[in-house]
């Protein structure tokens, strides 16, 4: 009723050409946004109940394979800036020296030192980035995930040098120009905010594993609740020798490596 009044009125004003389009736009076919379903958790989460973690069996990780990187970056609309200065990455491969710069190299074999290792946000239990953030935009979620609230980030970038793992990337320019094949299920970021891996919190609520875990052809990645003694990841952690990145800093990373 109101719409009709308005439409009629707009006709009178004769200038509302563009606005009039809105009223007549029933002709446009439906666009493709996925229908949402209820999440797997329907109650308000209890903080501290779970702590998500990841175990990377680097022995299984194949050289040259970039499937996890591609899947993650596609799923989350991560822009592909080519120049290194503006590069944005959530998960990437790096040399042993760069991933474990403070590890004692004496014991590491030539073979290990020549391999590349996956690096991503460690979702530290004691995270320096959340501590330094002046607005609490980078914060620790109830489930141990260190998340960035892109609605709140002021782009001061103090978190970037605060992170000992270089996990944060800044949007030096509008990321939309460099997103190759955007997906509708996950938003992009905007110019001027910091972004990083979110442990696929968007997939977890659907009851799915993180994209990198799911896509890995060798099942080198294991994801699960570090607080649950029965979880796969806990079992593996107890039966294997694992290491964390820069453990001496006391950040308590949630990402573990089997070398």
């Amino acid at each position: 009723m109101m719409n009709e009044q308005r439409r009629e009125f707009i006709k009178k004003t004769a200038l509302g050409v563009f606005v009039g389009l809105g009223a007549a736009s029933g002709l446009v076919p439906a666009f493709s946004l996925e229908k949402t379903a209820l999440p797997v958790w329907d109650e308000k989460p209890v903080p501290g109940k779970i702590r998500w973690g990841m175990l990377i069996d680097t022995r299984k990780c194949k050289e040259g394979c970039q499937q996890c990187v591609a899947a993650c970056h596609h799923e989350h609309n991560v822009p592909a800036f080519k120049n290194r200065r503006e590069e944005i990455r959530w998960i990437w491969k790096n040399s042993y020296k760069n991933v474990f710069p403070t590890a004692d190299n004496a014991g590491a074999s030539k073979e290990i030192q020549s391999r590349t290792f996956l690096s991503l946000c460690n979702h530290c239990a004691d995270s320096p980035c959340t501590q330094i953030c002046p607005t609490g935009a980078t914060f620790k979620r109830w489930d141990g995930i260190v998340e960035i609230d892109y609605h709140r980030c002021i782009g001061c970038r103090f978190c970037m040098p605060a992170c000992p793992y270089g996990s944060l990337s800044f949007n030096w320019q509008d990321p939309r120009t460099a997103i190759v094949d955007p997906v509708t299920a996950y938003p992009t970021r905007e110019q001027g905010v910091v972004e990083k891996c979110n442990f696929c919190s968007d997939r977890l609520i659907k009851g799915l594993q993180p994209a990198c875990v799911e896509v890995c052809p060798e099942q080198a990645l294991v994801f699960g609740d570090l607080n649950d003694p029965a979880s796969d990841i806990r079992v593996l952690l107890e039966s294997n020798v694992t290491m964390q990145r820069k453990p001496e800093l006391g950040t308590k990373p949630s990402v573990f490596y089997i070398i």
Binding site: M2, Q5, R6, F9, K12, T13
Partner: peptide, 21 residues
Amino acid sequence: IMPVKDQMLRLVNFSFDAPGE
């Protein structure tokens, strides 16, 4: 805001139509 704008546009167009809700 929509009926407000409707009404204000009516006023600037010297319309004497009754305002909406």
